[in-house]
Design a protein around this nucleic acid. Sequence first.
DNA 1: GACATTCATGCAAATTCTTGCATACAGAGA
DNA 2: TCTCTGTATGCAAGAATTTGCATGAATGTC
Lengths: 124, 124
Amino acid sequence: MTTSSDLNDFAERFKLLGHPVRLQILDVLRRSPECVCHLEALLGKPQPYISQQLRLLREAGVVADSKEGLNVFYHLVDSQVAALLNAALGPVLPGERTLHQALPGCICPKCAAPLRQEIRLVTA
Amino acid sequence: MTTSSDLNDFAERFKLLGHPVRLQILDVLRRSPECVCHLEALLGKPQPYISQQLRLLREAGVVADSKEGLNVFYHLVDSQVAALLNAALGPVLPGERTLHQALPGCICPKCAAPLRQEIRLVTA
DNA sequence: GACATTCATGCAAATTCTTGCATACAGAGA
DNA sequence: TCTCTGTATGCAAGAATTTGCATGAATGTC
C-alpha cells in the first residue's frame, strides 16, 4: 500500500493536472518549450491568467522557466508528469517534438523566425 | 494537439484523482474489490463520506458496484485510470492483487472469512 | 534617461469543492 | 410486518479554487 503522505503528494500533482488550462499548457510544453506570449495566443486567455497558472506549475516543480531577452520560455521538467500525460493523452509523436506551429496572432521570436528556431531545437 | 473538449474530459478525470481520499480508495480498489464498510474501516472516515466519494467515482464511470447480500462491493472499471495509477503510484505487485488484508475493526464478509475469499479470488 | 514590451504579482468577487451530519432507502432475518 | 444492518442521499457551513483586472517589475530600445 502506498503511504498516506505519499498519497497526498500524488493527489496534489493530480490536482494540478485536473484543470483544463493547465492541462493544455502542459500538453503544449511537452512538445516543445514555449514563451508566455505564445501560450497566450494559443490558448486565447489573458496573459496574467496564463502567468498565474504557470506559477502554480512552476512552484510545484512541474515546469521551469528560462529567460531569453524579453521572453520567458517555459519547459516541462517533471518526468513523472510527462509519463502521466503520456498515459492519459497518448504519447507525443516523434515529429511533434520539434514541430513548432507558428501562430498567426503570435509575435514571439519562435513564431517570427520559426525556421531558425527549428534548427536550434533539432541540434540541441 | 489534443482537442479542447478532450482536454476537458481528461482534466475532469485528473481532478477525480486529485483528492487524497479518492486516490486512496482507488489505490485499494485496484488491488481487489472491497465493500464500503471495509473502506470505512481502512480509511478511518465516516461511512457517508466514503459513499459520497464513491458516488463521484461511480458517476464518472471509474468504479462500479455490485451487491452481495447486505454489502456493496466496489471495483475499478476504468482501465485508463488504472494506467494512470500505475504510472503515478507504481504497478500493483502480482501478489498484492489477491492479498486482502483482514482488518481488526472490519466485520465485512471478506474480513470475517478471509481465507475462503482468497480462494475465490484466485480461482476467479 | 524615457519609453515600450514582456511577464509577474496582488487582490477581490464568484464559483466550486470539501466535509460533516441528519436522514432516507433497501435487503435480510425474526 | 417489524427491526436491524449496510449503504445512499440531501443539505449546509466553511474552505479552497477559479477568474478577471489593475498594477508592478525587469529588460531591451531609442
